[in-house]
Amino acid sequence: MASYVAPPGWPSQVRPPDAPMWERTAENWLLDISPPEFRSYPVLRRHPVVLARFAVLHVEASQLACNRGLSQARAELRDVADLDVVEAAVQAWHAESARLLGVRRAAGLVEEAIRGRRFRARL
Rank of each mutant, 00 (worst) to 15 (best):
R24L: 14
L31Y: 05
A95E: 15
F119D: 06
R24C: 02
P8Q: 09
A19F: 09
N67V: 08
R118K: 03
A26T: 06
W22G: 06
E23G: 01
V56H: 02
W29N: 04
P20C: 07
E37R: 07
L44A: 14
T25G: 04
V86M: 04
P42M: 05
D32W: 06
F38E: 03
L57R: 15
L31A: 04
A92C: 03
P48C: 00
V59G: 08
L30T: 04
Q72V: 06
A6C: 05
C66L: 09
P16Q: 04
R120G: 01
F38I: 00
L30R: 00
A55H: 03
A88V: 04
I114D: 00
A75P: 02
L123W: 09
P20I: 06
A2M: 14
R45K: 08
H94E: 13
P17E: 09
W22C: 03
V50L: 12
R53Q: 15
A121I: 09
V110M: 05
A73H: 02
A88F: 06
S3E: 15
D32A: 15
R122W: 08
M1G: 15
A73P: 08
E87L: 12
L57A: 11
P7A: 08
I33S: 05
D79P: 01
L64D: 09
L31S: 01
R68L: 12
E96N: 14
V49I: 06
R68H: 11
F38G: 00
A65R: 15
E111N: 01
V90N: 03
H58Q: 06
L51M: 00
V14W: 03
D84A: 15
L64P: 00
R99F: 03
R117C: 02
A107R: 01
P11Y: 02
D84F: 11
P11W: 04
G108F: 02
A55K: 01
A26G: 04
V56D: 05
L77E: 07
L57Y: 11
D79Q: 08
R53L: 14
D82P: 07
A2R: 14
M21Y: 10
L123V: 11
H47Y: 13
A75V: 09
D82Y: 05
D82M: 11
G102Q: 13
D84H: 14
S71F: 07
R99A: 05
H94G: 01
H47M: 12
A121L: 14
S3T: 15
R105H: 05
S40C: 04
A98L: 10
P8F: 10
R46A: 13
G9Q: 02
M1Q: 03
I114F: 01
A19G: 04
H58D: 07
L31K: 02
A107N: 05
D79H: 08
R46N: 13
A107T: 11
T25H: 03
S12T: 10
A75N: 13
F119A: 02
A81V: 10
T25Q: 03
V49D: 13
L51P: 00
R118T: 11
R105Q: 13
S71C: 08
W29I: 10
V90T: 00
E37Q: 13
